[in-house]
Design a protein around this nucleic acid. Sequence first.
DNA 1: CTGAGCATGTAACGAGTTACATGATTCC
DNA 2: GGAATCATGTAACTCGTTACATGCTCAG
Lengths: 174, 174
Amino acid sequence: MNATSYVVLGMLTYGPATSYQLKQRVAGTIGNFWAFAHSQLYDEPARLVAAGLVNQSVEQGGRRKRTYSITDDGRKALADWLAEPTLEQTEVRDTGLLKLFFGTQAAPEDIRQLARDRYESHRARADGYDLQRAEIEARADRWQLKTLELGLRYERTVERFWKDFLDELDRDPP
Amino acid sequence: MNATSYVVLGMLTYGPATSYQLKQRVAGTIGNFWAFAHSQLYDEPARLVAAGLVNQSVEQGGRRKRTYSITDDGRKALADWLAEPTLEQTEVRDTGLLKLFFGTQAAPEDIRQLARDRYESHRARADGYDLQRAEIEARADRWQLKTLELGLRYERTVERFWKDFLDELDRDPP
DNA sequence: CTGAGCATGTAACGAGTTACATGATTCC
DNA sequence: GGAATCATGTAACTCGTTACATGCTCAG
């Protein structure tokens, strides 16, 4: 059982879904900060079926597509995971940050370009979250909104960092 | 060539190193937000040697341990990477955030416990960064300090989020 | 009726994690 | 001189990514 397993179980608590629907549910929410490839969402449910945490119903005829639903054991497994202490360290895999770290090896224009790119990218994402919040505020549940709020605070912080850094580069060029 | 490759190349610009020394250089810096297993830092240099980006010198006698140094081609490859636009989306792999998202499936005490844990954990890390900054301020280069500063701002933002969330849970329990 | 984009799935490969094994050094 | 810890390396396995293949649906 890994993060993908619990994401599948969790998304199935909103109702039965095909892998494609799981993909969509993930894409609009936690996929924004933690990406799962569609192939993972096709593989993982099969494993969970084998473990008895998910039921599968196969469409008759056509593509014989598979719809998954969570079992009672699955709900139990999810609840147990939610009750467990969370030991893992957060991983922030940010290529821009790696590049910044090795800045001494870069040309000054490259650093500046990096900062501009990253600033734009994080600003765009933060703006997107703002819009999204306005859209879903009415129907989303409290925890989803909280998750989005952290995403937003994170993006604004990083946006601000690169902006400040750009200003600093102007005052004090490398 | 992936992130690990460039981390190895970048760390070798500070001087020749064994895999263990690479591990140490990474651990104190970018390993704080992007973890690399020690086995990766043993495998990757071998690949870079094959690609001509790194030289290997094998100790005579004893364990015949290998020390790596960056070649001119290696420096070029690193500089090219630094000059490239950075397209990848930042990935924030935070199990606590996943759990928060699925909060409707959790017991109220579990949510509260999660919030307390995450608050403590991010606060501890932020405090650690503060200390580290004070220690290295004199000798570290500008870009390393900037990287650390972003780490610090990030951790304080997340710390603050969980704190606010805890207060909110007190005012308005689930 | 045809091409574009949506939906479903699998295969192959590369990256990341965990476990194992063992040599060297230090400290009691 | 034995235990603990530091250091070096490899093997096995799992996970994640990319590419491939193809069916289905709907607009023009």
